[in-house]
Amino acid sequence: MPFLIDCPNCGRRSPYEFKFGGECKRAPDPGADVKAWCDYLYLYENMSGVQDEWWYHTMGCRSWLKIRRNTVTHEIIEE
């Protein structure tokens, strides 16, 4: 993968050490209707551009990281 991830615990690492956790989006309320849940589960922005996403450092510190990445250029945008 053409970029490296800056893990606050482990430093700059290859994305192969991580598990991709998908776009950052909040789950609907548990009581929300089925449509809201289906949208959440099955509809993705599939962004061509900058998006916030989750990565889990499986082969490292085992924490979830939120990363802002340009999905076209793979540039990681520091906040």
Binding site: K19, G21, Y56, T58, R62, S63, W64
Partner: peptide, 9 residues
């Protein structure tokens, strides 16, 4: 290992 990730998630 998966449980750990799942709980943290």
């Amino acid at each position: 290992p998966v449980t750990e990730e799942w709980f943290a998630r």
